[in-house]
Nucleic acid binder design. Structure first.
Length: 479
RNA sequence: UCCUCCUUAGCUCAGUUGGUUAGAGCAUUUGACUGUUAAUCAAAGGGUCGCUGGUUCAAGUCCAGCAGGGGGAGCCA
């Protein structure tokens, strides 16, 4: 059995001077041939290990290089130096793993996020990424905690599916075929009957339809799993593989849905602020630092933690699509033709610049837009009495844009079938989805929350590729 | 996929109207110092200037194509 040491977070928070301890971690810097800044990933604060002069062989000291892994035993003492309360006076230092300083790419200095993205296998060893991934973990935990406390059932939606009829985006194909020699039918088409599943399959683009099946039996469910979109998207807020949370609630109408989504987002934020104080303070300072390099005009008015607290203490603005169009149509921005896409008629899809205007300039807080024109929304959304709109809602937040997309689902069989036909969704193939409406149909609602976008919002990281351990996007599956 | 900007040492960047041997800080190596906080001081090593082609007496610098990256847009979460 390996002699497991004590975690540094614990040592730094409540270590008693005079106690004998053993710690293990990686060297951040080695100063003055005497002071080792050691980090074990439990916190960004390093434990200072003191190797007294003359006590250790030069050959050992030479191997204490940035990135090397050490096991250190000794006595915890009050630190005479500034910058830390306690430090570890080393009795024994064991090199667990050497790190060639000529080749180790991380230095005790600031690295650009772009450079660190190219060495994503090592970036966990930086303060920024260690904080981001500890926060990501806490956000994930908060999500499960929130739903668990509300009696939701965590439902595992399948990752491989046969349905690609949702129009949620381009799918990745799943096949066992030898791609150099694909079986063909007599008329030259790909013969999917010969494939593993006996028909065409793909990676899931959404667990929503499956969640609906669960919700109409279990009551309230949520999914939380990987989602795949084969879109050629090259942006700071899209990934080919990302994680999505999709709650689905029986007997919820659109307003219940909006209430839950707002409560949910606020819960995640407040839980993370409460349980990741140190990391959030670090990320707050990091962002402030980064903002200093921007021109005054582009800097945000609030710091990260301040912004999150502001979100917690204000209700999200609820605005119907129709009201939003009126605001946009009549705003000075539009009249002065500052929008690339001018707003002049009801029914247009809102562009990023319009959403940003509403959230960042007009309301200056999160906004829930609801009741969209049916022409720009999915087939499964419930038609409103006006015949023009559907009971959809999107939650928009400053800096990120859309973070939640949801709706009340169409529970009336006739209406749903009609919409499917209008939008060329294969009715026969989706018999199982329609069965919900045949046997004990009930009003129900749900939404999808992009996990990485929430982590972006909470950490203040501007590029989504920096909040997932190993990002997948076009032309990138390294690591 | 579209628009736009960028690519010079391990990292971050400078490099004049095209002109001789391409620079700095940090990192690395060596030495000095020894209660440091991204230690300090001194010295040294380190470059196919993204790739390919073109213009020119002469290209890191100008032009074209390609590749990679950033930002914005679309698609969306």
């Amino acid at each position: 059995m390996f002699n497991i040491g004590i975690r540094m977070k614990e040592v730094l928070e409540k270590g008693q001077p005079g106690s004998e301890i053993t710690v293990m971690g990686w060297v951040r810097t080695f100063r003055n041939n005497q002071f080792i800044a050691l980090n074990d990933g439990s916190t960004n604060t390093n434990l200072q290990v003191v190797a007294e002069l003359g006590k250790f062989d030069d050959s050992l000291l030479k191997r204490i290089t940035t990135g090397a892994a050490l096991k250190v035993s000794g006595k915890l003492v009050e630190s005479p130096g500034k910058g830390q309360h306690v430090e570890l006076k080393a009795n024994t230092i064991e090199i667990l793993g050497d790190s060639d300083p000529e080749k180790y790419p991380l230095q005790p200095k600031k690295h650009s996020l772009e450079f660190l993205r190219e060495i994503a296998h090592l970036r966990f060893r930086t303060n920024t990424f260690a904080s981001v991934f500890r926060v990501r973990n806490t956000v994930a935990f908060a999500i499960h905690k929130f739903f668990n406390e509300k009696g939701f059932v965590y439902l595992h939606a399948p990752i491989i599916t046969a349905s690609d009829a949702e129009g949620a985006g381009e799918t990745f194909h799943v096949t066992n075929f030898d791609l150099e020699n694909v079986p063909r039918t007599p008329d030259g088409k790909v013969d999917y009957k010969e494939d593993f599943f006996g028909r065409h399959a793909n990676l899931t683009v959404s667990g929503q339809l499956e969640a609906e099946l669960g919700a109409t039996a279990l009551g309230n469910v949520y999914t939380f799993g990987p989602t795949f979109r084969a879109e050629n998207s090259n942006t700071t807020r899209h990934l080919a593989e990302f994680w999505m949370i999709e709650p689905e609630m029986a007997f919820y109408d659109l307003e219940d849905n909006m209430n839950l989504a707002e409560e949910f987002i606020k819960y995640i934020i407040s839980y993370t602020l409460e349980n990741c104080k140190e990391d959030m303070a670090f990320l707050d300072a990091r962002l402030t630092d980064e903002e200093k390099t921007k021109p005054q005009q582009e800097r945000s008015e609030m710091g990260l933690v301040e912004k999150l607290q502001f979100v917690l203490s204000h209700t999200f603005e609820r605005v119907s699509y129709t009201e939003a169009i009126d605001i946009l149509k009549n705003c000075n921005y539009n009249k002065k033709k500052k929008f690339k896409y001018p707003v002049n008629e009801w029914g247009i899809d809102l562009q990023s610049e319009h959403e940003r205007y509403l959230v960042e300039k007009h309301f200056k807080k999160p906004v829930i837009l609801y009741n969209y024109p049916k022409g720009i929304k999915a087939f499964y959304m419930r038609s409103n009495e006006d015949g023009k709109t559907v009971a959809a809602m999107d939650i928009l937040v400053p800096g990120i844009g859309e973070i939640v997309g949801g709706s009340q689902r169409e529970e009336r069989l006739d209406n749903l079938e009609q919409r499917m036909k209008e939008m060329n969704v294969p009715v026969d193939e989706m018999y199982w989805y329609l069965d919900l409406r045949r046997f004990g149909t009930v009003p129900h609602s749900g939404f999808g929350l992009g996990f990485e976008r929430v982590v972006q919002f909470v950490t203040g990281m501007t590029n989504i590729r920096d909040v997932i351990p190993f990002p997948r996007y076009p032309k990138s599956v390294e690591f």
